[in-house]
Simulated assay, not measured.
Amino acid sequence: MSDELHVARRLSAAVLAVSDRLTVPEVLQTIVDTARELAGARYAALGVPDEAGSFAQFVVSGVSAEVQAAIGPLPRQHGFLAVMLRDPATQRVADIRADPRFHWWPAAHPVLEAFLGVPIISGDEILGALYLANKSGGFTDADEELVGVLAAHAAIALTHARLYARNRELTIAEERARIAHDLHDAVAQRLFGLRLTAQAADVLLDRDPAAARRHLTEVTTLAKEATEELQAAVQELRPADLATDGLPAALRKQVSILDRAYNGAPHLTYGDDDPPELPMPARTVLFRVAQEALHNAVRHAKATTVRVRLQTHDPDVVRLEIADDGQGFDVAATLKAGRSLGLRSMRERACAIRATLTVDSTPGQGTTVRLEARHA
């Protein structure tokens, strides 16, 4: 195999790793290993700084695990490590030890000579840097160009990781807000009713013991209902493992949680024909829409039966359907009045993955929520 073809294939593998299903650490390790190999360096590293003067990530290549352990904790931002995080220019020196910007390294650290540092940049922000050292004969312009390509793809991987983290934080915040709203609507109201009923029983205890006993029976019922609401909320705080278990299993678990929490209320059924698994963003959206629709059915619609179905609608479409026989509502009027945050949330989630959401409901005739997403 020619050198040019080998380089092209290794670069291609590193680039594809960015869009593959690998984790960010795996992508960064692939980039560091590729940079070291193609530039002919003995050592390579990729550093992503934190806000405390150290590094959030520091991936190395060419240094054994034993030597890494002997070196000790992750390095601080000093010397050339810090230079690369402040200056967007590539740094190339024949012997790093002779440069006035060089500081020191731990006793167990390999001795570095020829050095090439390439910043990882997104817009005007330096996200990190690639460090290469100890190439026989020193680094060349071609090495700079090649490592620059890998640094650009490291920037893509790190940017994707940031966006994923931010989206996850937003999702968590949304779910916490929804659970807080549910707790206020359900548990707080029941506890308020429990308090008033207990007060009424206390007032009636001497003059009408029979009425007081009836109120105390109601206190027991309200306490039981509040406990069930709290149990359901606690279960929801335990996230579904969509990545490991898949969407069908996560839906079954959610139905089981609600069935236990609302024992003797709505009868929940689940049906599916094991449709093909969706990409993770689509799985998450379908699961969250199912959660919202199920909660609406069991807490607000006064349904006696709720059916959940996940199936392949045609070769390219997976359909989720949640249907209940509850009191129903006027969809158009509700949306126009802006009264339903749940409907709006479901629509926004569907739009995020270009899925189709329909909500069919008529007062007195139940509600059907249907979401169709493409798996290919």
Rank of each mutant, 00 (worst) to 15 (best):
L16C: 10
L116F: 09
A165S: 14
G366I: 02
V93L: 10
E4R: 13
F102R: 02
V83C: 08
E292F: 04
M346R: 00
L230R: 07
L251Y: 00
K302T: 09
E292L: 15
G366W: 03
G148N: 04
D3W: 13
D95L: 05
A155Y: 03
H215M: 15
E51Y: 06
Y131T: 04
A303C: 09
R166N: 09
V359R: 02
V63R: 01
N296W: 01
I120F: 08
R178P: 00
R370V: 14
Q365L: 12
G47L: 06
A240Q: 00
V24F: 07
G123W: 06
G328L: 08
K135M: 05
K302D: 12
L163T: 14
D99R: 06
M84C: 11
D202K: 09
T23Y: 00
Q57E: 15
I322S: 00
L5N: 11
A45P: 07
H181K: 09
L146V: 11
G148H: 08
D360M: 04
H109L: 03
D330F: 11
V15R: 06
H160F: 11
A114Q: 03
A177L: 12
V67L: 13
N134F: 01
S122L: 09
H109Q: 08
L183P: 00
G148V: 11
P276S: 08
P209M: 07
T305Q: 13
A297E: 01
L28F: 08
K135P: 02
A352W: 03
V93S: 05
T220F: 11
L204K: 02
R176C: 05
H313M: 09
P25V: 13
L268Y: 01
A332L: 09
Q254E: 14
D124Y: 10
A44G: 13
W105D: 06
A177F: 11
R252I: 05
R260G: 11
E26Y: 04
S2V: 11
L74Y: 04
K253L: 12
S12A: 13
T23I: 07
L310Q: 01
L194V: 03
F287T: 01
P88R: 10
D124W: 07
L183G: 13
A94Y: 07
S54I: 02
L183Y: 11
R97I: 03
L146Q: 07
G328F: 00
R288W: 00
A376W: 08
D259N: 10
P248D: 02
E4A: 14
A376V: 12
V331Y: 10
F58R: 02
L242V: 01
R252K: 14
A350N: 06
L38C: 05
A151K: 00
A261N: 02
T140E: 08
A210G: 06
W104Y: 12
A69N: 11
E218C: 11
E348C: 01
T244W: 00
A152H: 09
A186Q: 14
L38A: 08
P75D: 05
V48D: 01
K253S: 13
L28E: 04
R283D: 05
A133C: 12
E145C: 07
V285N: 00
R374K: 10
A293N: 00
A210Y: 10
G338T: 05
G53W: 09
R370F: 06
T140S: 15
E218M: 14
T358K: 06
R76D: 15
D259P: 01
A265N: 09
R76H: 13
V149S: 04
A45Y: 06
I179N: 01
G364V: 07
T304I: 04
D141Q: 12
R36M: 09
D316M: 03
V331R: 04
I120Q: 06
